[in-house]
Design a binder for these strands. Structure first.
Lengths: 347, 347
DNA sequence: CGCGGGATTGCACAGCATTGCAACCACGCG
DNA sequence: CGCGTGGTTGCAATGCTGTGCAATCCCGCG
């Protein structure tokens, strides 16, 4: 009546062998007579048996599960990153267990709790925790380490307990500098940087480096910090920075393509400012949609294949290997949202 | 030396009770003295114990795992849908196990195999399989049913073994008709519909209904079918349909916002055609980016909350409940990519 | 024909938690 | 004071698979 999963014992009974034989038939390299294995596989096929990975994990010291903690899965870059990463994991025979840290939009709802998310993943005995969003407090890093679970931080600030987590970073400071230099070369004199209130991430470093580089060029930067990490933040920033035109901002750096696109679109379509002639905009990420002909956003690229490759390396390395810090280079991809450089070519 | 997960036995030893007591302390409603429970919880806290869900699942007839099979996770609508769904599952105490069916871009790589994906999820004893991409062949539906796993099909054609899977459908035919009527009302006479080669999905139904409605209005539709389900397909379609202008196509229906955006952007920015004056474009989905001021795409909306809600209902319903077919209504959201309706208001 | 050795196989236990059952405790009532 | 009762708790079995160890089988060689 009620269908149940077929177990190894069922197969053993049907094939007329012991349960161990069934187990061995499914374990590559185990000692089984070819004829026995064939009989077992045939019985398994007939019954529709497949190994219960959950039970198997009880034995092995590491599971096949990789926990990924993310928010902003709708963000165009993050979703591409998540897509690439989960596909790569799968090709390696690992499985993606997702924890979504997306805030509950209902009023009065509790904010998502990273600690609980990690706990949850530990309950499933994941072999690795990958953090795509949020900052990793020391205690959580330690918690994972204490359970023998590697933690991989992507574009997250390295925790004080640094020796306990793998870190993968694209060059935030370099990217911020690249953006500043490019805007200055375009002749922009009144710069602004737009970021969200999430104070915990690499995005701060991007903004800081941008400001520092501008300062070394004799310019001060208007810093606009507000709201969540989203398109709407860029929209709001553009309205507030550009409306009325009093400040005459002529160059904006969005610490994320999504933010930069919000700002650029609002300037262009809502406020009627010509981009790049009146206003130059530059982003960070190089999300797929930034290349669309509706945007043509000049941006600092973090190469997705490079980022994914580095992440995969960190995940696959043996459990006892020392943690590592992998840096991913960034470069500027020129499209149409920044005015042409004047005068001498940048060094 | 090597950190291991703490087990219930460790906690029992420390708290001076039996392993059963530990288990009961973590089971709501079990019979334990408050004082014993407190002692157990304290020991667990000190040791960093947490229940091993994998082992727990051996007992229960259903696990907490929901398998989601998807491709195109970079698609702006799918990613939003996946984001919403995984967040909703989590709020219900369920966990998302992802299988990514994204095709391996390397030449000579095997195409992703849905059958293997389902097998994989069964190995993890998921309680439900949700299909966001691909079509469900009868045998797979039957396979899941035989293992007592519910299958939920989202915008997938109902399999012949229909009584064995939950189906959630937004009204593809209605949406296709809406699109056709709107373009006709705008005065478009030379219509085209753009879709990908994936022949298996609700997208065919959208296109078919569009063509049928146009035919009943006395118009024939140029049908452009090629490539995968992506932005680039829309780009290629626009080039091929519009370049030279011989065909003078003046209305395009993209079966997906992503496709419609590719077509619209290419027409507007690459071919220099005014949208909506020279060409009207209409999409299907209402992805978040379609509302951006850089696009303002008129589109057939499948309400994401409605779709997510229906999916969640299907997933949460008791295991022995009959399968159901849930329809999600669609409506037209007017933005700026279709010329104003002429003459009489549509009935 | 007897024996050594390699290949195969089954037994039993490990791994982790849940749960039916029975033993146990204390307490209250007759 | 004895017994019934309700609440606790431990034992042992269950759920499913992996694996060390020993038993077994068969073959070949002396």
């Amino acid at each position: 009546m009620e269908p149940r999963f077929v177990t190894a014992a069922d197969v053993a009974r049907r094939a007329g062998v012991s349960r161990s034989a069934v187990s061995r038939a499914f374990t590559p390299g185990a000692s089984v007579a070819p004829e026995t294995r064939a009989r077992v596989l045939e019985a398994a096929e007939a019954l529709g048996y497949r190994v219960n990975r959950l039970a198997r994990t009880l034995h092995r010291d590491r599971s096949d599960l990789v926990g990924i903690i993310g928010a902003n899965l709708g963000n165009p870059y993050i979703s591409a990153q998540f897509d690439a990463l989960s596909a790569a994991l799968q090709a390696e025979g690992l499985q993606t267990l997702l924890v979504n840290l997306r805030p509950d939009p209902r009023p009065g709802a509790e904010p998502p709790d990273l600690g609980r998310a990690v706990e949850r993943l530990l309950e499933y005995r994941v072999r690795t925790v990958v953090l795509l969003s949020g900052a990793a407090p020391d205690e959580l890093v330690r918690l994972c380490a204490a359970n023998g679970v590697r933690m991989v931080l992507i574009n997250r600030p390295a925790p004080a307990a640094g020796a306990l987590a793998d870190v993968i970073d694209s060059d935030a400071a370099g990217g911020g500098r690249l953006a500043a230099r490019r805007l200055i070369a375009a002749g922009c004199r009144r710069l602004a940087v737009v970021l969200s209130e999430s104070r915990t991430s690499a995005k701060l470093a991007r903004a800081d480096a941008f400001c520092a580089e501008a300062a070394s060029g004799g310019l001060t930067v208007r810093r606009w910090t507000q709201g969540p990490n989203s398109y709407e933040t860029g929209v709001a920033a553009a309205r507030s920075l550009l409306e009325g035109g009093a400040a005459r901002i002529d160059g904006i750096f969005g610490v994320t393509d999504e933010i930069a696109l919000g700002a650029m679109n609002t300037a262009r379509h809502e406020l009627g400012l010509a981009v790049p002639h009146r206003l130059s905009v530059i982003g960070f990420d190089d999300a797929p949609i930034s290349a669309w002909s509706s945007h043509r956003l000049t941006t600092v690229r973090q190469s997705l294949p490079a980022l994914t490759g580095a992440t995969l390396e960190a995940i696959l390395c043996p459990a006892d290997a020392a943690v590592s810090h992998r840096a991913v280079a960034v470069d500027l991809v020129e499209r149409g949202s920044v005015a042409p450089a004047r005068g001498s070519a940048p060094g």
